[in-house]
């Protein structure tokens, strides 16, 4: 895991955006994370707008950590995975809480990845990791740009590894991307990141 040696340990949260072609990837990632994965993971995956149930249940089959659709004003906790609910934008607000909104569609989507990424980077600044996966539109690109501008870490699924590469490719065109990785690479990255985060926790406890 040498190539991730230099990952910092300042991070407070991970945001993941995905659309068409990302379901398998997400499933593989979620099934590879340890039960005690430290950082909160907040996911915005494009989904049917008017189907409230089923999606989180489907993702939970493979995940080691229970995924929840947060309620408005719920606190963001460590060792938790969250999924943006159907037909609401999911944002991060001050005080480490979630904020939902029924605002207009953004990039034809609600939930919109850009909204999650932008609001999260506004709150977490350089302490945020953004990951953008396979997808057929441009949602998430400008969010990744914000993360990069504020000194956060940006990761995309390697366009070559994507079923549909428009989403990560748009981000790559718009902004600096720290890592472009295939699915296994993303998993390796997350495990290395978790190790780095836990090593600080250990130091603090000593």
């Amino acid at each position: 895991m040498d190539k991730f040696n230099s990952i910092g340990n300042q991070y407070k949260a991970i945001v993941i955006g995905g659309s068409a072609g990302s379901f398998q990837v997400i499933n593989k990632i979620l099934s590879s994370l340890p039960r005690d994965f430290e950082l909160p993971i907040i996911m915005c995956l494009h989904r049917l707008r008017h189907v409230r149930n089923g999606f989180v249940e489907a993702l939970n089959i493979k995940s080691n950590i229970e995924i929840k659709e947060p309620l408005d004003k719920e606190s963001i906790k460590k060792n938790s995975i969250y999924l943006a609910p159907a037909n609401y934008h999911l944002g991060v607000d001050i005080g480490n809480t979630f904020a939902l909104s029924t605002d207009d569609l953004v990039n034809n989507s609600r939930p919109s990845i850009d909204i999650l990424l932008q609001t999260a980077s506004y709150v977490y600044k350089h302490k945020l990791v953004g990951i953008l996966l396979s997808g057929a539109n441009r949602d998430g690109a400008s969010g990744m740009q914000k993360i990069a501008e504020r000194g956060g870490l940006t990761v995309i699924q390697d366009p070559k590894d994507c079923l549909i590469d428009t989403m990560p490719a748009s981000a790559l065109k718009l902004t600096t991307i720290d890592y472009s990785l295939n699915t296994d690479g993303i998993i390796e990255f997350l495990l290395a990141l978790d190790k780095s985060i836990k090593s600080v926790a250990l130091l603090k406890n000593e």
Binding site: G91, V92, D93, A99, S101, T119
Partner: peptide, 9 residues
């Protein structure tokens, strides 16, 4: 008002 959506508006 909640900051994130107010700011966006």
């Amino acid at each position: 008002y909640a900051m994130s959506s107010f700011k966006r508006r």
